[in-house]
């Protein structure tokens, strides 16, 4: 079949990608603006980056966000992997459908509801058990794990669904006990999916504003909470600088991962070609 694409489709692609990237590019360009009025060009300057470097609240918030995101991603990955494993591999067990429902529900739940309900839980727990004592990093992490483990579950479950179950059966058949099969066969094979799940959980937590706003306490402002409070006061060039830094980190990471994947894919294709050729 030909690769012909109509003029219309090409125009829409150009338009679509421009739509996706112009806002991000404008953020980056204006971060180098001398002027305090973000959108009025006043000459090139890196002073907002210097200001960012000395902005203690931003640095503290970023560090807090980083710690929460790391803990969240780790917790969510462990819980999500267990749930994904149970759903994909344990066949029909009692109350499986409840577990399946509970793991997909956070995906469709509006964040305001999740945030509100988590806060009310923490308040009630504090009344009854005197724990958690106030709200802060612990409550934020618990809330984040609860909503982001659903994503890890989906990633792991769908990876396991495409994983040939006879691989695990073969290991059992060759004398490995179930727990060992998981660590020797299943885990190494689904590791890329688990890592993807970890990164996803990290990003969700790192970005989250709404749920965090409900369950955070005084002195536990994560980066999005801080940015949001600054935004409500209007645009400010140091947010642009911060945005640029964050966008660059993500871009470099994604592009590097993409290149690595492409290179390995190429090498693998070559291997397969050789194997086929070698057999003839």
């Amino acid at each position: 079949m030909n690769q012909r694409r109509s003029f219309f489709v090409l125009t829409m692609m150009v338009f679509g990608f421009a739509f996706l990237y112009i806002p991000i590019l404008s953020l980056i360009v204006y971060s180098f603006n001398e002027s305090r009025l973000v959108t009025v060009w006043g000459g090139f300057s890196t002073k907002w980056y210097v200001a960012l470097l000395h902005n203690e609240p931003v640095k503290q918030a970023a560090w807090l966000s980083f710690r929460i995101a790391t803990m969240n991603a780790t917790g969510a990955t462990i819980l999500g992997t267990l749930a994904g494993l149970a759903l994909a591999r344990f066949g029909r067990f009692r109350s499986r459908s409840l577990l399946a429902g509970l793991t997909t529900a956070p995906l469709v739940m509006p964040e305001v509801i999740t945030g509100l309900s988590m806060l009310l839980l923490f308040v009630a727990m504090e009344q009854v058990f005197h724990w958690p004592d106030g709200r802060g990093i612990t409550t934020i992490t618990i809330a984040h794990i609860t909503f982001s483990m659903a994503y890890v579950t989906v990633v792991v479950q769908s990876r396991l669904a495409t994983l040939d179950e006879s691989l695990e059966e073969a290991a059992l058949d060759l004398g490995a006990r179930p727990a060992k099969v998981f660590f020797l066969i299943t885990l190494p094979i689904i590791m890329p999916a688990i890592l993807a799940g970890w990164l996803l959980a990290f990003t969700l937590s790192w970005d989250d504003l709404v749920i965090t706003s409900f369950v955070n306490g005084p002195g536990s402002s994560t980066l999005p909470v801080l940015i949001f409070s600054k935004m409500r006061l209007g645009v400010s060039p140091d947010i642009n600088a911060l945005a640029t830094v964050l966008v660059l980190i993500v871009t470099v990471g994604i592009v590097a991962a993409g290149l690595l994947m492409a290179r390995q894919q190429k090498r693998r294709d070559l291997d397969v070609q050789q194997a086929v050729a070698g057999n003839q």
């Binding site: 040939d164 006879s166 691989l167 059966e169 073969a170 290991a171 059992l172 058949d173 060759l174 004398g175 490995a176 006990r177 179930p178 066969i185 190494p188 094979i189």
Partner: peptide
């Protein structure tokens, strides 16, 4: 007897070779 204790082995249709 669970499969990991049986003196029985199986060759799978998909071969099930461990890819890693």
């Amino acid at each position: 007897m669970p499969p990991y204790e049986r003196p029985v082995n199986m060759m799978f249709q998909s071969y099930a070779l461990f890819p890693h």
